[in-house]
Simulated assay, not measured.
Amino acid sequence: MPPHPSSRVQKARENLADRLREIRKDAGITGRELAVRCGWSESKSSRIENARTPPSDADIKAWCRACGAEDQVPDLIAANRQSADAHVQWRRLQRSGLRRLQESVVDLYQQTRMFRVYVSDVIPGFLQTPGYATALLSSIAEFRGTPDDVTDAVSARMRRNAVLSDGSRRFSFVLEESVLRYRLCSAETMAAQLGHLLGVMDLQNVAVGIVPFSAQRAVWPLPTFTVFDGIRVHADTLDAASALTEPSQVELYTRAFERLSQEAVRGAAARSLIADAVASLT
């Protein structure tokens, strides 16, 4: 099988192949012996180890069983599934505009009951006003050179965010104080956005913490990420949104969120930081 046209997907496949090869070597068996134990041809073992053939979930289970490494099955299966769709290419999603990008996660939002959201750059999408979202998405569309469907994209984002008012769902947000200060829109729009943030903090199913500039850090500021029900993570970068499902990866991000949450202030102290940010606009 030729290399995958996406370099990211191909790299993920190669990483998985490397991990399987190391498991075999750690077990002290040859590719031929592995093939005998798994009941397939030696050439199949070679193709998997050299990332020419993506293994099935059953292949991974057989491989680990043959090597006495059954404890690694969950992570490897998750990595195998990620190799095809872990990196959602924003440019591909955005070819028809930003609206599609907003709608691409609607099903995931509907399925999720507990959201943990950490942001270090912008107001979380869940908490954005139409004015703030318009300014942000307009900037993204201009930078990425995508079709200008910002009005439709903002409407889609607002519809998507209706899950926030569903009391059966829980939301925990941790924001860096810098998020309150970055000027991505006019002073008036930012003031309205910060006022909306104060209002959202009154919702019973929403918890908002803010990490002050003055906080003694145990965890450095990280790129924005969201944990969905403790089983999936979306970590954003400039060119892609990484969907992480390996249990070890999800555990790592969940642990990072809990550490960051401990550094955040809440209640009156958080409201004071927002009020200071509003005051700085004038």
Rank of each mutant, 00 (worst) to 15 (best):
L175I: 06
A156W: 06
A153N: 06
L198M: 11
A191E: 15
A207D: 14
L175T: 10
E177R: 05
R157M: 04
L180S: 03
S178N: 09
L194E: 13
V154W: 07
H196K: 11
R169A: 10
V206S: 10
A153K: 04
L175D: 12
T151F: 01
T189C: 10
L175R: 05
V200Y: 02
T189S: 08
E176G: 03
L197A: 08
A207F: 01
G167C: 07
T146W: 06
S178C: 09
F171V: 10
R160C: 00
F171A: 08
R160H: 05
G195S: 14
P147K: 13
L197P: 05
H196T: 03
G167Q: 14
I210W: 00
A162L: 13
L180G: 07
T189G: 05
A156I: 04
G199H: 10
L203Y: 12
D166G: 03
S186G: 15
A162Y: 00
G145Y: 11
V163K: 06
H196D: 03
L197W: 02
G199N: 14
S178R: 14
V163E: 08
L203G: 01
R183A: 14
L184R: 11
F171P: 08
S214H: 09
S186E: 14
V206C: 07
D152A: 11
N205F: 02
M201I: 05
R157S: 00
A156G: 05
N161G: 10
L194K: 08
A207Q: 14
E176L: 07
A215P: 02
A215M: 08
M158A: 03
Y182P: 00
F173Y: 15
